[in-house]
């Protein structure tokens, strides 16, 4: 009996291999992203206006996620907040990946002095907690959307840069790169034509793993009140404001935006992890 159930389990496990699981999570993540984007565009800004006659309504068919203490539709706010967070996160993560790629390639190709400086820089950035650094940079840049985006860009690259550097250094010692040097290729040519194509899968995985990180950090810093202005419907602001009303029983103010954030982050985190296992069976620990 026991053996049959194990066999059955094995067979079911085999039907969904890593490749198809990655594919399914990619489709789900894309559907989520598209529905948030299109939803934010379709909903318009009417739901964001203050309607005092509709204050504090519980979820109903008219207002699926309920309304807040100013009568604003929570569905509109949640979707628009998520879309804003996703855009900031995507921008921050993409720029982080570009910085990481440039740093890793420079460390590997520009010689030992450059490698030491960049490794030191990576260690310095990693030794300070992400969030503290992010708050500091966002504050220096004057807060707001720009401050957060720059903060995320400048704080998320070191862990990926370290992986890219190690991979690039390994590639630099392969015979074909050594031959390329002897055939007169410059360091830049080698970085662009030999190293970069090999590192592309790593960078893609890096982007997908950094993206949920960036979204969470954006929400966290906005929640702490250091991010965007309260007029913008950011997920962090919505959650932070809802804290005051939770004790009066208005659970829908925090539950739906929180669930939305959780779902988005989890979807991309899962996709990133699946892709990481596909690209590198030895696991790249970010």
């Amino acid at each position: 009996m026991n053996r049959t159930s194990t066999l059955y389990h094995d067979r079911r496990h085999r039907r969904w291999n890593e490749r198809s699981r990655t594919f399914i999570s990619a489709i789900l993540a894309l559907i989520l992203l598209a529905s948030i984007g299109i939803g934010s565009w379709l909903l318009g800004s009417s739901g964001l206006s203050v309607q005092l006659e509709n204050r504090n309504l519980a979820p109903s068919f008219l207002h699926l996620f309920g309304t807040d203490w100013l009568g604003r539709d929570m569905l509109s706010r949640t979707v628009k907040g998520l879309w804003l967070s996703i855009r900031v996160g995507l921008l921050g993560a993409a720029c982080s990946v570009i910085i990481a790629a440039a740093m890793g390639l420079m460390a590997a190709t520009l010689g030992q002095t450059a490698d030491r400086i960049i490794s030191w820089l990576i260690d310095v950035f990693l030794s300070v907690p992400h969030l503290v650094m992010l708050i500091l940079i966002a504050f220096v840049c004057g807060g707001g959307l720009k401050g957060i985006a720059i903060g995320i860009m400048l704080t998320h690259w070191p862990s990926l840069a370290r992986i890219i550097r190690a991979e690039a250094l390994q590639l630099m010692s392969t015979d074909y790169v050594l031959v390329a040097r002897k055939l007169g290729s410059s360091r830049f040519t080698i970085a662009m034509r030999h190293l970069a194509p090999h590192l592309l899968p790593q960078l893609l995985v890096g982007l997908l793993v950094l993206f949920p990180h960036a979204v969470l950090h954006e929400a966290a810093i906005t929640f702490l009140g250091l991010g965007m202005s309260p007029h913008q419907p950011a997920i962090g602001i919505i959650l932070s404001e809802s804290m005051r009303y939770l004790s009066t029983g208005m659970w829908w103010l925090a539950v739906f935006p929180g669930l939305g954030l959780l779902l988005t982050v989890r979807a991309f985190d899962k996709l990133g992890n699946h892709l990481r296992q596909l690209v590198d069976p030895r696991h790249t620990h970010l």
Binding site: D175, V179, K182, G184, S185, H194
Partner: peptide
């Protein structure tokens, strides 16, 4: 620059970039 001393390796499969077509590899130098 192009080195006047060229080495030919014992294992050619390691001396070419696996992601390049041979035409690109041949015309590298």
């Amino acid at each position: 620059g192009y080195d006047p001393v060229q080495l030919i390796f014992q294992h050619p499969e390691r001396a070419v970039n696996p992601r390049w077509r041979m035409a690109k590899t041949l015309t590298e130098g």
